[in-house]
Design a protein around this nucleic acid. Structure first.
Length: 488
RNA sequence: CGGGAUGUAGCUCAGUCCGGUAGAGUACUCGUCUGGGGGGCGAGUGGUCGCAGGUUCAAAUCCUGUCAUCCCGACCA
């Protein structure tokens, strides 16, 4: 069998790039750091988007759309915020092109300089809060629960498909509340929603936690995160939900009259997940044979391959199976391509991550069975044609569960306690994964540990148990363990 | 943004040192024999050698610049 994908043990980075390419997820584009998301990759995003959108709406949020361009002056209104993004912004300075008088194509028309430069949004807090100022007058206008699906640009110097690209797609929720309690509650509601989505739909186990001051979003009071663990032992920040306090309300002067006719600043949250999740999906489940898509995110979770090629008898059975699956809301495809051989198709669908493959040949028909191959374990069995749709429906659920449990075991096996720096370094440098250790709570110590080990504090887990201990670096007292890891 | 490497057919790459008609495998197209895990045989299509300058009678090859990609580092979601 011709290997098209580099094995993980040989070169993990190359393996990831091979999957992205060979599974038809994305291509590089002519623009540095930007990728073309191809139909196979975009289909997964569409599935994610549909589910998340439903979850947002079920919790009372509505969608809107704000401009791509942000006046430069907006960005400087919140000091912490601008500091966090200033280094990676694309700036629009002109609005017109002209023919080069020297005949070398087009040039920027120097007379068309913008009076105020525009920033291509790296995130939309500023333009949204500038708008909310006009929308919010009274406590009756609150809460304001708005989400937008959009693209954003962060001028990254080192990019990887899906994991970190200069332009990416995401959703960003921006909510305004009358009280701190309500805003905190919203932040945690979304954190739970993200975790539920990651675990139940992506089959990607995550740890919910709070970011340290050093790692938190620029302009936030608290940043909550879901952290996932990739197969190479590195952590991936998969989604964040921020409690913004009154920082943006102050910066944009967003106030309301409360029930007692007293003016107050509003309380804010923002939260987002991006196409980065697709990278997480790949690195959570896929193997050396290619992509593995959890059934709930597969546009076409079942494919039927005629062996060796379509005949009337095979086609009739395939059509019956497709109809029976469709009645259950399961989308299936029958591959009638006569030019490609079955073996080729098997390899191709495995590479593309299709969860279940059915093989039907005359021998199967004679016995009243079909061959069922599951992508997660690569196990093949013969199943009676009778009741096959029920069997597949259950199998898809089983695959979904198995993928999650497999990833969960992998993750849990890689949460290791360390009680001193020697242990810590040993774990980070060999086993990888999360290291659970005591920390004195200072940024100084966190930065020092990063310098020594390249590991950062991924989060302070929400369910961290109180435990008296001493900081692994400074020996100062600590009340609970935090999770360290090397991260993407 | 620093260090290293690479850009030649859709893909993987040879040719570059030492300038002289653009190559192979694979893919694709057609035909044919096949047919339960990436088929065999035969014939064919396909490239301004990343882009822009320069040196030269002559540039994929030498020089300069530039763009992009990969790996490592710093930075960051």
């Amino acid at each position: 069998m011709a290997k098209e994908i580099t094995s993980r043990s040989e070169d993990y980075s190359q393996w990831y790039n091979d999957i992205v390419k060979k599974a038809g997820m994305a291509d590089h584009s002519a623009v540095r750091g930007c990728m073309v998301i191809k139909p196979n990759g975009f289909a997964i995003w569409e599935k994610m988007k549909a589910q998340l959108d439903k979850m947002f709406k079920d919790t009372g949020h509505v969608n809107a759309y704000f401009p791509l361009f942000i006046p430069k002056s907006f960005l400087s209104k919140e000091a912490q915020h601008v500091e966090g993004f200033a280094k990676e912004c694309a700036v629009v300075t002109h609005h017109r092109l002209m023919n080069d008088p020297n005949g070398n194509g087009v040039i920027v028309d120097p007379t068309a300089k913008l009076e105020e430069e525009l920033i291509v949004r790296p995130t939309s807090e500023t333009i949204i809060w500038n708008t909310y100022k006009d929308w919010i007058q009274s406590y009756r206008d609150l809460p304001l629960l708005i989400n937008q699906w959009a693209n954003v640009v962060r001028w990254e110097l080192r990019t990887r498909p899906f994991i970190r690209t200069a332009e990416f797609l995401w959703q960003e929720g921006h909510t305004a509340h009358a009280t701190k309690e309500e805003a905190v509650k919203e932040t945690l509601l979304i954190l739970d929603l993200y975790a539920k989505f990651a675990e139940e739909y992506m089959a990607m186990p995550v740890i919910k936690g709070v970011k340290t001051e050093n790692e938190r979003f620029a302009g936030a009071e608290d940043t909550y995160t879901i952290e996932a663990l990739m197969q190479d032992g590195k952590a991936l920040q998969a989604g964040t939900s921020h409690f913004l306090g009154q920082n943006f309300a102050k910066a944009f002067d967003v106030t309301f009259l409360n029930e007692h006719q007293k003016e107050e600043l509003v309380w804010a949250t923002s939260w987002g997940v991006s196409t980065r999740l697709i990278g997480g999906l790949i690195m959570t489940h896929s193997d050396d044979d290619g992509l593995i898509i959890p059934p709930r995110l597969a546009t076409t979770p079942v494919v039927i391959v005629p062996i060796p090629k379509p005949t009337d008898a095979i086609t009739e059975v395939a059509d019956q199976i497709i109809a029976a699956l469709k009645a259950k809301g399961i989308n299936a495809k029958y591959d009638q391509d006569k030019k490609k051989r079955p073996g080729f198709k098997f390899a191709e669908y495995e590479m593309r991550g299709v969860p279940v493959r059915l093989g039907i040949g005359q021998r199967d028909l004679d016995k009243g069975v079909v061959e069922v191959a599951r992508r997660d374990t690569k196990e093949k069995t013969s199943q009676p044609l009778e009741g096959i749709a029920d069997y597949i429906e259950n199998l898809l659920e089983e695959i979904q569960t198995n993928l999650f449990n497999r990833a969960l075991k992998f993750r849990d096996d890689r949460i290791t306690k360390a009680d001193n720096m020697d242990e810590f370094k040993e774990i980070i440098n060999t086993k990888g994964g999360f290291v659970s250790a005591h920390w004195d709570g200072t940024t100084e110590t966190e930065v020092k540990i990063k310098e020594l080990t390249k590991a950062t504090i991924r989060c302070i887990p929400i369910d961290a148990e109180a435990e008296e201990g001493t900081c692994i670096l400074t020996g100062k007292p600590s009340g609970k363990r935090v999770l360290f890891a090397k991260a993407y």
